[in-house]
Amino acid sequence: MQSVVEFDNVGLRYGTGTEALTDISFTLYPGSFYFLTGASGAGKTSLLKLLYLAHRPSRGSIRMFDQDAVTLPRERMPGFRRRIGVVFQDFRLVPHLSTFDNIALPLRIAGIQEKDLQNPVSEMLNWIGLTDREHARPATLSGGEQQRVAIARAVIGRPEILVADEPTGNVDPDMARRLLQLFAALNKLGTTIVVATHDIHLLQEIENAQMMRLDAGRLADPTGSLRHPPKPLVLKS
């Protein structure tokens, strides 16, 4: 099966410090679902940053969409990034934009016409239960609401890879389950999902999801499954 992402002996060092990530090797396949776990400071966010092309690795190779992402020219980055949805740990909503405009942002950046984005954004607002807050600014939203907006913004463009950093950290269990169902629905449509989380209960919500565990910047692959194609996804009822 054709891979979406391949890391081979990747290392990441910030400045002249010690390596935040060491000898990371794994392969992500289309339509698969991965949980990334590990203690605080283990390197989860750093790994996600490499996945959504916020950093280039210090060493090793990364292939993404069958192209070398390490030597990817800067001017080709936007095209790659439009294929990746990101849920940031700190949401990173644009503070002066309304809920509607924040969710619509990726579509507008991609040049979607206004008439064509009204429906998908409204549907997304409805799905995350924030239709009545579509004109609200992020500062007036609760943490959970901001997180839902951040997730809606990440998934609205139907990305090929969705990278989420602690996406359920600020929502109640019911909303966390609904958000995972959204991820699972996207996954069924072929999106590769990578979710970094501390919440081990989430791992049980999605069958056949694979786990990547980081420990002090090194990847543990206890099942050895990271290098094998995933089985079809089944969401627990």
């Binding site: 936007p78 990034r81 990173r92 644009v94 950046i109």
Partner: peptide, 16 residues
């Protein structure tokens, strides 16, 4: 800068 970084992460170009 924050807004520009977010735009970049979503595939916004320098020209945009």
């Amino acid at each position: 800068r924050e807004t520009i970084e977010i735009m970049h992460m979503m595939g916004g170009t320098d020209v945009q």
